[in-house]
Design a binder for these strands. Structure first.
Length: 731
DNA sequence: AGCACGCCGACT
DNA sequence: GTCGGCGTGCTC
């Protein structure tokens, strides 16, 4: 009998698996199962990626698995393959990739099928809570008060929200002031009844549905290119209906900003089947429940943001990526910087099922994939009820007077549309009151002390806040340098709102930004007030450009389009065009053409001109020619080695040494190291090294060899570094 | 990353 | 004389 070795992925920064022997008196774990293993002086939970009959290490150096945590695999062979591919492609430690893919409670070794235990307050407990003497037991009192505010609380939620809850809980239980109930996790088969009939499809939609339906059961990638209101969601719904009828499940990815609940609602209205929804703002306990529902096949529709791409789904039949151009699909922080859109493609390919990427403003990567016949384009040309596309026009800020950031032509257009009973939407890509606080006398500007950035003024909270590191301080009344008066300079959403209140008395204004709408429920409330007609003027940031359609909005104003016109980032133009088209798409309905006014100092700018004259498609075609000439993606492949250190030049020094490790690489060029766009952020100094190649495989081969050497560098220990493959922001 | 070991400065 | 600073090395 061959000895069996378990290859285990452990959440360490070491980019390899570790070999273990099976537990002494138990069978070897199956691949895809979690195991508890000794690791140095610690015990860690890892995932068995494979069983092997050999090990690179002598047997006597190997230790034994302490406990097998899953009798059946938590991850299927396909799930394991996806994660292994991701670790290789992004050159990221395998264990850390696995950790990203699993909900926290599974990472901690929790049994996904264990019964849930709920804690609740008893009648006696409520009485005791009123007794002043209860205040003496501070922690017990706190816990009890917390339980009194809700029905029943799950143990995992308690652990997350009130660390150290167990001791006071035990004391309260002994006194009869709290009670526990236990419930088995639901693994019953899902109830799937017939879907509610959907509306009739127009010919474009019907074509799209037919094309994808014909491809079911094999890999094929489709780019569903349709303007807002052209009925992309209806195409998704019809496809999902077919896939469910085949007994298969569907993975639906959506961008991060509050869109999941909206999509879930559309799906829930249509299908009488459990839907698993994963989004931000869920507790660990809820995440585990949803993950489990999806993984055991109880929920056959999974709707979620970026990290949902890793969730196991038995009999996956279709993948949908909505608003595929959205930057939030790319993990931008931390070490494992993956693109959920790209991994979704890979997953569809590995499982052999079609994938539909939807957008009104497709990413240049996807347009290029259409041009090279990797994606099949599906065009939706009609807007709902034959609505006309909005009219875009520019307002030359040099030729018109501006009143607190609002030009006269824009104000007049607002008067006109408001008088006609329509709603008006103003987009400004800046939250807060003003981006700068400046001294009238000496010109001093309030700086962030940890970043190379200015503090943003927040008038209502009377604070200065740094939007890069989160630092906050009291709003100073006088200049820190000369002691004379300071004033806010520039305009953010808060200030525009203030101006609007003065200029349009009697019209209710709804502000959309992160400061005003912290929770999903607040966002929903604001959207309700827009739909009911109560709100007449909408002003907000990015938040307004995503998803929500406001049919009664007849005028859209873009207040500051100029910021990205002269950016050094090769993607800036693409993003600006997407933002303008997306925000323009919020407006309009069948019987009325929407107006979009874009305020700019540079009306003759070629980017704005091509967008206005030729639309997003024409603009993209032109911009892609420029990308090709300049050898930028999608005509080349990039990776960025980013580093930061507390010492001003630690990052640069590390990157310089990294560059010297492999000189004259074949078909690969290294540029840099150069300081990052914001050199100092949150007290650390940032720099980066750009790696470029015309061919993806060349780049991959280079990175694999290079990163192994990079991590050996002594200077690598003195900095924080991360490799960003296919980076979005290069400068 | 953790977590140890190990060798030099200011303190009960 | 110790407590503790963080440099360096290891984890199957």
């Amino acid at each position: 009998v061959n000895p069996v070795f378990c290859k285990v992925a452990l959440d360490t920064p070491l980019r390899r698996c570790f070999d273990y022997l099976p537990p002494r008196d138990a069978a070897a774990p199956v691949p895809g199962a979690r195991v508890l293993v000794p690791f140095g002086r610690q015990q860690l939970v890892g995932v068995v990626t494979a069983l092997a009959d050999s090990s690179d290490l002598p047997v006597e150096k190997l230790r034994q698995v302490l406990r097998v945590l899953d009798a059946t695999p938590l991850l299927s062979a396909a799930d394991l393959a996806l994660l292994e591919w991701a670790a290789a492609y992004y050159h990221h430690p395998i264990g850390s990739v696995f950790a990203t893919a699993l909900p926290k409670l599974l990472r901690d070794g929790r049994d996904p099928g264990s019964p849930q235990v709920f804690w609740s307050i008893t009648a006696a407990g409520r009485v005791w809570l009123q007794d002043p003497k209860s205040l003496r037991a501070k922690r017990q009192h706190e816990l009890l008060q917390w339980l009194a505010a809700r029905d029943a609380c799950d143990e995992e939620d308690l652990a997350e929200l009130l660390p150290g809850w167990r001791e006071p809980a035990r004391a309260l239980l002994a006194k009869g002031f709290v009670a526990t109930t236990s419930r088995q996790r639901d693994v019953s088969a899902p109830v799937i009844s017939a879907a509610t009939a959907g509306p009739r499809l127009d010919p474009d939609q019907a074509n799209a549905v037919t094309a994808v339906t014909n491809a079911l059961g094999q890999f094929a990638a489709f780019l569903l290119d349709g303007v807002t209101g052209s009925g992309k969601t209806e195409v998704y719904l019809q496809l999902v209906e077919t896939v469910l009828a085949r007994g298969e499940s569907v993975l639906v990815l959506c961008p991060e900003i509050g869109l999941a609940p909206q999509l879930v609602e559309r799906f829930a209205k249509r299908f009488a089947t459990p839907i698993a929804a994963l989004h931000s703002g869920m507790t660990d306990r809820e995440r585990l429940g949803v993950w489990h529902d999806a993984a055991v096949g109880r929920a056959r529709i999974l709707i979620g943001t970026r990290s949902a791409v890793f969730t196991p789904l038995p009999r996956l039949g279709l993948v949908i990526v909505d608003e595929e151009h959205d930057a939030s699909y790319k993990q931008q922080e931390g070490g494992f910087r993956y693109s959920a859109r790209d991994l979704a493609l890979l997953r569809a390919q590995q499982v052999g099922v079609p994938i539909v990427l939807g957008s009104a403003t497709p990413s240049f990567e996807s347009l290029h994939n259409v041009a090279t016949a990797k994606f099949m384009p599906l065009l939706l040309t009609r807007r709902a009820g034959n609505a006309q596309p909005p009219r875009l026009s520019l307002v030359d800020l040099r030729a018109h007077a501006v009143h607190k950031g609002l030009s006269i032509p824009l104000l007049q257009a607002m008067d006109r549309h408001l008088a006609a009973g329509a709603q008006v939407l103003l987009f400004i890509n800046r939250r807060g009151y003003a981006p700068t606080l400046i001294c009238n006398t000496c010109g001093w500007i309030a700086p962030c002390h940890a970043c190379d950035a200015r503090m943003t003024v927040h008038q209502k909270s009377q604070r200065l806040s740094c939007h890069h590191c989160g630092a906050e301080e009291k709003l100073p009344e006088r200049c820190a340098r000369c002691g004379y008066e300071v004033r806010p300079l520039g305009h953010g959403t808060e200030r525009v709102e203030e101006t609007l209140v003065e200029r349009f008395p009697g019209f209710a204004i709804e502000r959309f930004d992160r400061d005003k709408l912290r929770q999903q429920s607040q966002l929903e409330g604001a959207i309700d007030r827009v739909h009911s007609g109560e709100a007449r003027i909408l002003v907000g940031t990015q938040m307004l450009t995503k998803g929500h359609h406001f049919p009664e909005v007849a005028l859209v104003g873009v207040l500051n389009a100029d910021q990205s016109l002269f950016s050094t980032d090769f993607r800036a133009a693409e993003r600006l065009a997407q933002t303008i088209v997306q925000v323009a798409g919020r407006a309009g309905r069948a019987d009325r053409v929407g107006d979009v006014l874009i305020q700019t100092q540079y009306p003759e700018h070629p980017l704005l001109q091509s967008l206005l004259n030729e639309g997003y498609g024409g603009f993209a075609a032109q911009a892609l020619v420029e990308r090709n000439t300049a050898h930028w993606p999608p005509y080349s492949r990039l990776a960025l080695l980013r580093a930061s250190g507390v010492q001003p030049d630690a990052a640069i020094q590390f990157l310089q040494q990294a560059k010297l490790l492999m000189e004259n690489p074949d078909g690969v060029t290294l540029q840099g190291p150069i300081p990052a766009a914001m050199v100092r952020k949150a007290g650390r100094y940032y720099a980066q090294l750009l790696v470029e190649s015309a061919q993806r495989l060349r780049l991959q081969k280079y990175l694999a060899e290079w990163i192994e050497k990079v991590e050996q560098l002594p200077s690598a220990r003195k900095v924080r570094w991360a490799l960003d493959v296919d980076p979005l922001d290069v400068f």
